[in-house]
């Protein structure tokens, strides 16, 4: 009896603070247009990063993102957030972040030691937008 109440409470909280979805027509296919820039053109990173695909980000939203992740065919496959561990530990919250699509089939969260653009240890939060997205971004 308690569990449904907790879930109902969480759902209400989630719905009340739901992240805004970006304009689907504008971001479903690469390139997403302004204010997004292709990460590999702004930073020394591979154009297609295994596991993340081709990333675009609004520079004003660094470091957390959202980073829009596209597969080789240019289809939006995931939305990625990068949150520095020290900032989280120091009390910084990253709230109300936008999502590339309101359809989320799975979420991966894992540690990353850093890379150009977010050059400190941080967490990757990856929201996959369809069941095959992870495989398409793998390599």
């Amino acid at each position: 009896m308690l569990k449904p109440l907790i879930f109902a409470g969480l759902f209400t909280l989630s719905a009340a603070s739901a992240a805004p979805a970006l304009d689907a027509d504008a971001v479903n296919q690469s390139p997403p247009g302004e204010p997004f820039v292709q990460v590999s053109e702004a930073l020394p990173l591979p154009e297609f990063i295994p596991g993340l695909g081709t990333l675009f980000v609004d520079p004003a939203q660094l470091p957390a993102g959202p980073f829009l992740a596209y597969d080789h065919a240019g289809k939006l496959s995931a939305t990625v957030y990068m949150t520095p561990l020290k900032a989280l530990q120091d009390g910084t919250a990253f709230d109300g972040l936008a999502v590339g699509s309101s359809t989320v089939s799975a979420v991966d969260i894992y540690y990353n030691g850093g890379h150009p653009g977010v050059d400190e240890p941080h967490a990757h939060v990856v929201l996959f937008h369809d069941a095959e997205a992870k495989a398409r971004l793998a390599e």
């Binding site: 894992y110 990353n112 030691g113 890379h115 990757h124």
Partner: peptide, 9 residues
């Protein structure tokens, strides 16, 4: 070198 997801470099 680095692990696949960048956990270790």
């Amino acid at each position: 070198r680095g692990s696949a997801r960048g956990e270790r470099i």
